[in-house]
């Protein structure tokens, strides 16, 4: 599905990714984890073509992404910070994105699911953070693409919406889609993900299932396993 070879990226002198190799197979939920500033978002943005790598190759669904934009029609992306043009109405934004991508969509079910009906005529600038995130989720999931990338999807969500999001992710996975998630909420990651990819200092430190990680770090639970990696490498 996604193949990354020898990916290097630095911003000015700040090296963020230094030789990442990653293969993500089709189907399943992959969590990209790592401490703050470990390059999770940079990795995701490189896959999306928003960050241009200094070196390395990325293939998405068999297409090299360099100087290519069409492959993005196969990706649904949920950005980390839900900032939208503030003088647009929710309805207009949804219509606009639909117009730009031109796929048939299923936004009405999602609007119902997240109870966004009363907000459709409100301007995006007047919405609360959590509501914006719900709009963000609707915009992401309304297209039926085989690859879904979620950057911190849980930010600002209330418990009910969080449960709905988890159900939604599970449903998409059952359709055979590939889902890439970054999150700092370990319980969320543990609950939803099939496999984790741990980034540390610009390299992939660990890739495998959660139980493998527990064995490798000799820790009984997931949160402590992650913590032990961090303390052993930073203490």
């Amino acid at each position: 599905m996604v193949t990354i070879q020898n990916l290097h990226k630095k911003f000015n002198k700040n090296v963020v990714l230094s030789g990442v190799n990653l293969d993500i197979n089709a189907g399943g939920i992959f969590a990209v984890l790592g401490p703050n500033g470990s390059g999770k978002t940079t990795l995701i943005k490189s896959i999306l073509g928003m960050v241009i790598p200094n070196e390395g190759n990325i293939n998405v669904l068999g297409n090299n992404i360099k100087n290519n934009s069409n492959y993005r029609s196969q990706i649904d992306y949920l950005p980390q910070i839900a900032n939208f043009p503030s003088n647009l109405k929710v309805k207009e934004l949804i219509k606009m994105i639909k117009d730009l991508r031109g796929n048939h969509t299923k936004e009405s079910d999602l609007i119902k699911l997240f109870k966004l009906d009363p907000f459709l005529d409100k301007k995006l600038g007047n919405l609360s953070g959590g509501t914006k995130q719900k709009v963000n989720i609707v915009l992401t999931f309304m297209f039926d693409s085989p690859l879904i990338i979620l950057d911190e999807p849980t930010t600002g969500l209330d418990p009910i919406s969080l449960i709905r999001l988890k159900e939604l992710i599970q449903k998409e996975k059952d359709k055979g889609k590939t889902i890439l998630i970054t999150s700092h909420i370990m319980s969320f990651v543990e609950e939803v993900s099939d496999e984790i990819v741990f980034l540390l200092e610009g390299k992939i430190y660990f890739k495998g299932s959660i139980s493998d990680l527990k064995i490798k770090t000799n820790q009984p639970d997931f949160e402590h396993a992650i913590a032990s990696i961090l303390t052993n490498n930073h203490a």
Binding site: N70, P79, P85, R101
Partner: peptide, 16 residues
């Protein structure tokens, strides 16, 4: 001012 909007567009299948 339209930075956020631009970022939204960049993730869509559109040429830069």
């Amino acid at each position: 001012n339209s930075k956020e909007f631009t970022e939204l567009l960049l993730a869509q299948p559109l040429k830069r």
